[in-house]
Amino acid sequence: MAEPFLIGEAMTGGYGGADILHNCTIAVEKGEIAVIVGPNGAGKSTAMKAVFGMLKLRMGQVRLQGEDITALSPQARVTKGMGFVPQTSNIFPSMTVEENLEMGAFIRKDDIRTTMEQIYDLFPILRDKRRQAAGELSGGQRQQVAVGRALMTKPKVLMLDEPTAGVSPIVMDELFDRIIEIARTGISILMVEQNARQALNIADKGYVLVQGENRYTDTGQALLADPDVRKSFLGG
């Protein structure tokens, strides 16, 4: 099998103390969407944070385009082309939408206006609100700011920790559409989702985690069709 674009392979580790992840493998191909689902406390977010370098792995490896990046800090991974959108506190609330985007591009030294225009095209509402403080926006709009901020570095991989947490179903569909659009531009998407059914629907690859281990791994459609997965994780 060819090397995936980004892979966290056989990851074992936790936040000190007991391990949360046990031999867990997460991978995403170029321009594809990979989704991590599973019950509460399955270690979904932890797996994603492990891939991004936010916790120390005892065993296993993270590789981006074949390069071992296990030892790199999250910031160093950002320079390598990884973008991360945390689940909460993912914006600068007192700064304007435009300033949020500018801060996202802090490490870039070149002209950021084109990227900013692209993000405004992707999320037109942000263009209208660009002079407004991000903290004053609605939940869905804040998520758009958060995703936009992460896109400002022109990442090759975008990692999203529950992007639809706390937004209405309509906004959720809208966000998923935008995420598909982002993937079409060639950016790989790795996301953790609570809304498993909808997320698997758009996923090229799905990972069902239970207690920090891979339980099922398949294409999104195959997982949706699997009776065991449906019964145990998708409510029938």
Binding site: P74, V78, N90, F92, M95, M103, I107, R149
Partner: peptide, 15 residues
């Protein structure tokens, strides 16, 4: 201002 607003995110943004 970004650092004052959200330290962790500022770090992630390369500040």
């Amino acid at each position: 201002r970004a650092y004052s607003d959200n330290e962790d995110l500022a770090l992630l943004s390369g500040i």
